[in-house]
């Protein structure tokens, strides 16, 4: 800068234009080079778009409920019927140590009553999650994983998730269970 200034000291207008031109060339070159370099890093198919929870890693710490940027978390409990044992005494439906198997508040695990169950045949019950009520607290998931088949598990519902550039829950997840996934594996389902 010093040198150029001294060289063109007598003609400030031309000096300015010369600098301008140099700058333009450098900037244009940078844009092209960076664009080309970065373009090699993109892969349409494999690019990591969505956030998702790996149920195998999840330890149900309860932060999904509290740390999502949305007023009500985009994490919901989902239920794999094919894994479920359809038990009457369900570790996700009832609190542990229940005395009677009825729907009284003191026996229920879910704080919002989002788990509904339907009698199928003796002794089987079908469980379904009412997503509108689910807060993603993971209490039932903990119960089901510790006492049952693990058919209840947490997933980020992609239709609710706002797809933050960086997931706030992933930041605080104690078991590093949340990672980016590509288009094809938007959900990590249990079968």
């Amino acid at each position: 800068m010093e040198e150029k200034k001294n060289k063109n000291i007598n003609n400030p207008i031309r000096r300015k234009e010369f600098l301008q031109m140099c700058g333009s060339v450098i900037a244009g070159g940078t844009v092209l080079a960076a664009g080309a370099k970065l373009a090699t890093k993109t892969k349409v198919k494999e690019s990591d778009v969505f956030w998702q929870i790996d149920p195998a890693r999840c330890t149900q710490c309860g932060r999904c409920e509290t740390d999502c940027v949305l007023p009500v978390s985009a994490v919901k409990c989902i239920h794999a019927n094919r894994v479920c044992g359809y038990c009457d005494l369900c570790g996700g439906y009832y609190r542990s140590n229940v005395k009677e198997l009825n729907t009284a508040a003191e026996n229920m695990m879910c704080p919002t009553g989002a788990i509904e169950r339907k009698f199928i045949e003796d002794p089987y019950f079908e469980y379904t999650i009412n997503e509108d009520l689910c807060t993603g607290c993971g209490k039932c998931v903990k119960g089901c994983t510790s006492f049952g088949n693990g058919s209840l598990y947490l997933q980020i519902k992609q239709d609710i998730c706002v797809n933050c550039n960086e997931c706030q829950i992933a930041q605080v997840c104690v078991s590093d269970a949340i990672s980016r996934v590509d288009y094809a594996t938007a959900y990590k389902l249990k079968e």
Binding site: P55, A80, G85, C87, E121, N149
Partner: peptide
């Protein structure tokens, strides 16, 4: 239709029920 099932270890404490009512 998400078919990608992951290899998460299901506990399998309880066997799959045999439904008689054609559920």
């Amino acid at each position: 239709t998400a078919t990608a099932a992951i290899g998460a270890k299901a506990q399998n404490r309880f066997p799959k029920p045999d439904f008689e009512s054609g559920y």
